[in-house]
């Protein structure tokens, strides 16, 4: 037994090592691209000074910020500091970039997780229902709604929800962060696309599986339909659903930029946009770094879940 266990351990270790190495390369590449693009696209100094500032002022502030140094030198400093977890001082807020980002993170986590949970809780049952009642009225209506949800831009959904549920019906606050009522509209807006995608994918993945031989066998055994669908079919349809769910996390991060702006939600999506406008390099770099890291961690987690769901994918 011992040699076999050892092999599995080694396989798992190799699996992690390669994934981690890939992840580090990805984070480094992303940071470098952002570093270059930000610097090529604009200088923060003119944005900081009043329009009638004399040239000597520009030079002084550039020196203060270090933007007067050659790009390779700036890059070296950036990499060296980033390795130590130091992203520099925010140009706009005049405090450490990392602490700015950390202050904005909880709001995005709250919104993102709620949207995600909402999407899963609504979408999977709907997808299952549509698949089981294929071509019924329920199927047609829910899939039509899902199609709209997938095609409507986040901006439009957000403003529409504000105008209808908040302004006209008066149930919920229009914007801002506060108690749970403030969370409903932005979470719905942010989750809409994900919800629609997951619902549609659940339906098609389940339809595929429901045609499989083992499902027929299960039915032939006389199992109840509910057991057939949930235990035999859904479990086998889970891998594509989990995959798309993980990829959707990236969509959520992107959607947060628009959603947070529409709902005046103080999260890192809005921080990212403002920091780009202000050419606040340190904050943009830190936000991108944190987002890339989150995305990679989630994808790693998903790869582990695959193994749990499907023994065929377990590392050997």
């Amino acid at each position: 037994m011992a040699p076999a266990g050892f092999t599995v351990m080694r396989a798992v270790a190799t699996f992690f090592a390669t994934r981690l190495a890939r992840a580090l390369v990805a984070v480094w590449l992303v940071s470098t691209v952002v570093f270059v693009v930000m610097r090529l696209s604009g200088d923060p100094v003119p944005l900081l000074l009043p329009p009638d500032a004399p040239r000597s002022e520009y030079a002084r502030v550039a020196k203060e910020l270090g933007t007067d140094r050659p790009l390779p030198v700036q890059y070296g400093v950036f990499l060296g500091n980033a390795l130590r977890g130091d992203f520099g001082r925010s140009i706009h807020f005049r405090e450490p970039a990392a602490s700015v980002v950390v202050a904005y993170l909880p709001a995005t986590a709250e919104l993102g997780l709620t949207a995600f949970a909402l999407a899963l809780l609504v979408a999977v049952p709907i997808g299952v229902l549509s698949a089981v009642r294929r071509n019924s009225l329920v199927d047609q209506i829910t899939m039509a709604i899902a199609l709209v949800g997938q095609s409507a831009p986040t901006f439009f959904v957000g403003i529409l929800l504000i105008l209808v549920l908040s302004l006209k019906v008066g149930w919920l606050p229009t914007s801002g962060r506060g108690d749970w009522t403030n969370l409903v509209l932005p979470a719905l807006t942010l989750g809409a696309f994900t919800m629609a995608s997951i619902a549609r994918l659940t339906r098609s993945a389940l339809l595929e599986v429901l045609r499989a031989d083992y499902v027929r066998t299960a039915r032939a055994k006389g199992l109840r339909e509910r057991v057939v669908v949930i235990k035999h079919a859904l479990r086998n349809a889970a891998v594509p659903i989990v995959t798309i769910t993980a990829l959707q996390f990236g969509t959520l991060l992107g959607g947060a930029v628009v959603t947070e702006t529409v709902f005046a939600w103080p999260g890192i999506g809005r921080l990212a946009i403002q920091s780009i406008y202000n050419r606040d390099y340190p904050v943009v770099q830190c936000v991108v770094f944190v987002s890339a890291l989150l995305f990679i961690v989630i994808n790693l987690t998903v790869e582990l879940i695959y193994g749990v769901l499907d023994p065929r994918i377990r590392p050997r």
């Binding site: 302004l167 914007s175 529409v262 005046a264």
Partner: peptide, 10 residues
């Protein structure tokens, strides 16, 4: 509230 539409709604 950066969005004008949201600011007016508020």
């Amino acid at each position: 509230i950066p969005e004008t539409a949201a600011r007016i709604a508020a």
